[in-house]
């Protein structure tokens, strides 16, 4: 199966869908590995929201593309270079600080994204956004509270959060390297960036985390299907069964 995507809007939405899916998969890794059981359950909820969101978005994409493929086809039958998620969300759970920092930066970003989708001319996307924004709001509150706890908790938690933020911020630059598709489907790209920066900066200040200078990165853009090496391992685990048993139905 070689999946091709023709429509511009579908190509654009694939970025959003893939970002939700890959982060969902990363967060699912926390299941039975959380720092305590209540938080384990919380992370599972976040992961479930992300998978649900990805599925709905793939369905919208499938519809735009004339139902040539199903949502599962998009998930299980594309390779590394055909995935268009933010590099930020494929970064591993090095420790709980990475999990939280990654989630927080993501949540602030998608809050802006789906706010703009609410007035999309694609009615399904606009409808989905109303539901999704509630999920994002909750996840945002959860991750922001943890930013505060880790940043202001102990010396160790502060050091770990600082490390996580410093690493993960390298993957932020590309988010705002807007291309034509972005400009066509977002009402206001600049607003996404400025809102993201003011919100994140305020939180980092509040939780005593320093924004070290990050030189401009030469890592090539996620919009062209560029990734870190982590993506291959994530996909090979996620896609194992449908790839190993191509005739099977699940």
């Amino acid at each position: 199966m070689k999946i091709t995507i023709e429509n511009k809007e579908a190509k654009f939405l694939l970025r959003i869908a893939d970002t939700a899916l890959i982060l969902g998969q990363r967060v699912a890794e926390l299941c039975s590995n959380g720092p305590f059981l209540e938080e384990d359950i919380a992370q599972s909820n976040i992961s479930l929201d992300l998978f649900g969101r990805a599925e709905e978005l793939y369905k919208i994409i499938a519809k735009i593309e004339g139902d040539k493929y199903t949502a599962d086809d998009y998930v299980f039958h594309r390779n590394e270079r055909e995935y268009f998620n933010l590099k930020l969300v494929e970064q591993p759970n090095e420790d709980f600080a990475w999990t939280i920092a990654r989630q927080y930066m993501h949540d602030v970003y998608v809050q802006e994204v789906f706010s703009q989708f609410q007035s999309s001319s694609n009615e399904e996307l606009a409808g989905l956004s109303a539901k999704v924004l509630k999920e994002i709001r909750y996840s945002y509150l959860h991750s922001k509270d943890w930013m505060m706890r880790l940043g202001l908790g102990t010396e160790e938690s502060h050091r770990r959060l600082q490390d996580a933020v410093s690493h993960l911020r390298k993957f932020v630059e590309e988010i705002f390297n807007w291309d034509e598709l972005d400009r066509e489907y977002y009402q206001d790209c600049d607003k996404i960036k400025s809102n993201w920066e003011s919100e994140v900066n305020a939180t980092l200040d509040a939780c005593n985390i320093t924004r070290e200078d990050i030189p401009s990165q030469s890592m090539r853009d996620y919009r062209d299907g560029f990734h870190s090496e982590h993506i291959g391992h994530l996909l090979s685990i996620m896609q194992y069964l449908p790839r190993a048993y191509p005739d099977a139905k699940w």
Binding site: G34, F36, D95, F96, G153, E156, S157
Partner: peptide, 10 residues
């Protein structure tokens, strides 16, 4: 692995 997280929360 979660010990430092619980300590931070406390």
């Amino acid at each position: 692995n979660g010990a430092w997280v619980r300590e931070a929360a406390a």
